[in-house]
């Protein structure tokens, strides 16, 4: 456990945090507890209130009601010193177009009070880490969306923060980039940083997080360790494929795929149970086509966040009915 956790064991704690935009309640009495040293996934569909919560935590927005503590300190708008030990990557970050990547990190580094030696070692390291080596002297205005995303991650790690808050870091990245970001998050957590990462992709959170909070319409549905949450979300994900020419070879080919636990045939329906929540429709359809099958229909259940919400909400109602 990192040394500062002795002083505060919660990196983030909110109490009945509420934010209203006019009559719309974007965050509704949210009680969030992020343990020090954890990788905490903040999961919810579009418009759930993830970014709003995060903006309150980093002091960009004022809460309508309730309170929030970050690294043991009460959060207020415009509290410069509190941000010395926080790294934040905004959702779809935008940086001054006229600055070069390395220049941006340099000038931000100065704002953190980093001395020249610290900047000289840290900046090339981060540029390398986020895969922008060779492009650091290009203007940010000429960066692709994914590259802006990468420089956004780099600037969030600049000050070796105790707490890193990443708002949908993998949005806009290609599949390789998404995997890289996941590896990166795991790596920085090993360095002792607490990571709070929002996402709307269940499988992404499952792969990297130790804790998960699931939020919908501004309210936390569940907040616990990944293990506990996974158990609550019952059963494996299943896929049903309607195939013309469904042969034994096709079943075998699908079964041989690594994310597939079981594949069974019933009539022209192929029932596939998966060991992952990742979207593997492309992989499965390729295997079927290659082995001579013709796909006429395909559904994947238990995959989407919606399915999980429905399960969780149903569970709650069952719980309260008893």
């Amino acid at each position: 456990m990192p040394f500062w956790c002795v002083a505060v064991d919660l990196a983030i704690e909110t109490i009945d945090l509420t934010k209203q935009y006019g009559s719309l309640t974007a965050v509704n009495k949210l009680n969030l507890r992020v343990e020090c040293g954890s990788i905490h996934g903040f999961l919810g569909p579009n418009g759930a209130g993830k970014s709003t919560t995060i903006k309150i935590l980093v002091g960009l927005l004022k809460a309508t009601q309730g309170s929030a503590k970050v690294l043991g300190q009460e959060v207020h708008v415009d509290q410069a010193d509190a941000r010395l030990s926080i790294g934040y990557m905004p959702e779809l970050p935008r940086f001054p177009n006229h600055l070069k990547g390395a220049e941006l990190l340099d000038v931000y580094g100065r704002m953190y009070g980093m001395n020249p030696q610290e900047r000289q070692t840290q900046i090339p390291r981060l540029i390398d880490l986020v895969g922008l080596k060779g492009r650091e002297n290009d203007l940010i205005g000429k960066y692709s969306k994914g590259m802006q995303q990468r420089i956004g991650i780099a600037q969030a790690l600049l000050n070796n923060p105790q707490l890193v808050i990443l708002d949908e870091p993998s949005i806009g990245l290609d599949p390789v980039g998404m995997v890289e970001v996941r590896e990166l998050v795991k790596a920085i957590s090993k360095e002792g940083m607490t990571v709070f990462v929002s996402s709307h992709l269940l499988y992404e959170v499952e792969q990297i997080c130790s804790h998960v909070t699931i939020i919908n319409r501004g309210q936390a549905l569940v907040s616990d360790t990944l293990e506990t949450v996974s158990q609550m979300i019952s059963g494996p994900t299943v896929m049903q494929v309607e195939v013309v020419n469904l042969s034994g070879a096709t079943v075998a080919a699908v079964k041989a795929l690594s994310p597939v636990k079981e594949a069974t045939k019933s009539g022209n329906m192929l029932n596939v149970s998966l060991s992952t929540r990742e979207d593997v429709r492309a992989e499965v359809s390729q295997a079927i086509t290659k082995s001579g099958g013709i796909i006429v229909g395909m559904t994947q259940k238990g995959h989407s966040l919606e399915d999980v919400f429905i399960q969780l909400i149903n569970k709650r109602q069952e719980g309260s009915a008893q």
Binding site: G59, A80, I86, Y88, R94, P96
Partner: peptide, 13 residues
């Protein structure tokens, strides 16, 4: 331009 977001979340008041 939205650049105010990363700027104001640096330790500068």
């Amino acid at each position: 331009k939205g650049t105010v977001v990363p700027l104001l979340t640096k330790p500068v008041s």
